[in-house]
Computed example of a mutant assay.
Amino acid sequence: MAAAGARSPPHPVPLLLPFCLLLLAALCPAARAARFACNATAPRASTCQALISYAPPNGTATATLAAVRALFQLRSHRALLAANGLPLSTPPTAPAPTPMRVRLPCLCSGGAGATFQRPTYRVRAGDTLDAIARGAFAGLVTYQDIAAANNVSDPNKVAVGQQLWIPVPCSCDPVGGQPVVHFTYVVPAGSSVAGIAQEFGSTEENILAVNKMPDAKGLLAGQVLDVPLRACGSAISNTAIDRNLLVPNGSYILTANNCVMCGCSSSTWQLDCQPTQGLSSSFCPAAKCGDMFLGNTSSTSSCESRTCSYAGYTNSTSFAILANITTSNVCNAGMSPMAQPAHSSAFRLEPSWFRWTELVVSLHVVLLCVGYLRQD
């Protein structure tokens, strides 16, 4: 028995707890918020249409096209089909492909870009900001992003029914002096910079530059990456309402009040626009170049062809669809959009013994801390 007045040894819990917390923080770093540079200052360049990659979590209600449209508050089902290159006959109840492309307006402000006003999310019982960020929006944002955008002082306290703006990072900046469509992409495990560049018709150099990555080895699984997608050139007039129309390969856009469908040609890198099928001719005025209708092509030689190309639409006095003749050289069109070579400097995110070691050490630290905390 201890002598009267003797001081008992300090309880190990107060001494060990700070060590446990520090070690766990070092082994399990918090997700970092992505910040996409957005400094575009040209007329109307402070806003643009960006693409977001979204992979619906398995077994959730967001597994259909209708559910994805509702989650991101898209104005039309057709817009979702267009962004993913799906036929216009695809029903809303169809399963959502994984990942999906979602086209949203992007706003540049203070040197960074975020989706404008959309999407929003209404808090449900049991929700936390982290669950909303990781679950509902599949890691496109962090809970810190949501808290900062909505002036939430305590991320652990959100009210049921509260409406939250989800600020998905995006950009409107040109790359290499050329307009591009910025694609917000959550990196899957096993990816490489070169593989992502090849998949989306970009280049490793551009991806590293826009994400301010010193080399390809810095790529992390779950990282929110800015992938600049090359956009097709067009014959759209500078006075047309849709003069800033940008379409990357693998998708199309409905424009001119949905009367015209424009895709990105994989052979000429020019917009390939056709009248949208199934719409009333009384609503959509005909677009012609002399005797040729919009989208018609004729050959002038074995290499050259003439096309009645889309030139935009106007609505100043009346709704009109513009078109003019363009000539293209099909023998010197250059690379297909998807034909980007892989680079040997790629670093693949394969599972490694070190990551497993981190997991095992973390588990032991947790068990050790719990054991001490349960002591009297």
Rank of each mutant, 00 (worst) to 15 (best):
V370H: 04
P228A: 08
I236F: 05
P99C: 10
A346C: 03
W269T: 04
E304K: 07
S299D: 15
R230F: 12
V360S: 14
A287S: 15
D376Q: 06
T327V: 14
P14H: 05
S362G: 15
Q162V: 12
G190M: 12
G59F: 05
S153T: 12
V168W: 02
V210I: 10
A286C: 07
M213Q: 04
A136N: 11
T64E: 06
S8Y: 09
S191A: 15
L74W: 06
A3D: 04
V175C: 02
A2Y: 04
S153L: 14
V102C: 03
R348N: 06
V360C: 14
N151L: 15
Q163S: 13
T120V: 15
G290R: 10
T268S: 05
A133M: 08
P155H: 15
N211T: 04
R32L: 11
T60L: 15
N58S: 15
S202E: 03
S89I: 13
S266E: 09
A67W: 14
G177I: 09
R35L: 07
C262K: 00
G312R: 02
N58A: 15
G222M: 04
G5I: 06
P351R: 14
R306P: 01
G113P: 01
A50Y: 02
S309L: 13
C284D: 04
R374Q: 05
N238Y: 12
A138Q: 05
V123A: 01
Q163E: 12
F283K: 14
A209G: 02
P43S: 11
Q274D: 07
T314C: 07
G177F: 04
V187H: 03
H77G: 06
N156S: 09
R118W: 11
F19Y: 09
C331E: 06
G312H: 00
P155K: 08
P179S: 01
L15R: 12
M335D: 01
P97D: 01
F354H: 08
Q223D: 12
A221G: 13
S298G: 07
G295K: 13
L71S: 01
I146K: 03
P188T: 06
A197F: 05
T98E: 10
V158Y: 00
A209F: 13
C303P: 09
M100E: 00
F19W: 09
H77M: 09
P10I: 11
L254V: 11
P92E: 11
S298P: 02
K157S: 12
T64I: 01
A94R: 07
C289D: 07
K217S: 13
S8D: 12
C262Y: 00
L363T: 10
C20G: 05
P99W: 02
V260Y: 10
L24N: 08
T64Q: 07
L140T: 05
V152K: 03
Q162I: 07
T255W: 00
F293W: 03
L71T: 00
Y54F: 10
T142Y: 01
S76W: 05
T41E: 15
P18S: 03
A231C: 10
G110M: 07
P10Q: 12
L349S: 08
C259V: 11
Q144T: 10
N238M: 13
F354N: 08
L104Y: 13
L220R: 15
E350I: 14
M338Q: 08
C20M: 14
P119I: 02
C38Y: 00
A286V: 15
S281V: 13
